[in-house]
């Protein structure tokens, strides 16, 4: 992982929508590694308060965020006047990815930006090319 890429972990403390085994495994592995990282209790709660820490986190350069859906994370930060830079933010989705997948991406070198860059609509299955 690039020395300059930061890691932000969201514990989604106030809901049970992130599988507990996933978030626990991710936090445990991060805490037992030798890297510095930021952990927040709940990005939703911070966004609602327009916590200035979000601005600091958004403006600090490349960041990998272990949280939930990229679209939700993008607009949670935006709602707090702390827009995330699309080209240097990678969101790892603990709602749908396994802990191993999240950790592999979080601890690997490089960054794969994946914030939506505009209105994106997934085509219906019938519109997808046959495989």
């Amino acid at each position: 992982m690039s020395d300059k890429t930061r890691i932000l972990y969201c514990n989604c403390t106030y809901a049970q929508v992130v599988p507990k085994p996933v978030k626990e495994a991710v936090l445990r592995e991060l805490a037992q590694s030798d890297i510095g990282f930021e952990a927040v209790a709940d990005l939703c709660e911070m966004s609602a308060r327009r916590d200035p820490a979000l601005k600091r986190l958004a403006e600090g350069g490349a960041v990998k965020i272990a949280a939930c859906f990229p679209r939700a994370v993008k607009w949670l930060f935006s709602a707090a006047d702390a827009p995330l830079p699309c080209d240097s933010t990678q969101v790892l989705n603990m709602r749908v990815q396994s802990a191993q997948e999240v950790l592999a991406a979080a601890l690997s070198p490089g960054l794969e930006p994946n914030l939506p860059r505009g209105k994106e609509t997934r085509p219906a299955p019938s519109e997808l090319p046959a495989s």
Binding site: N11, E24, L27, F37, E38, A39, V40, A41
Partner: peptide, 15 residues
């Protein structure tokens, strides 16, 4: 870290 997050605090690990 786990206990503090569960209590709603933000935690930074500085190395």
């Amino acid at each position: 870290m786990s206990a503090l997050l569960d209590q709603g605090f933000a935690v930074t690990r500085a190395v």
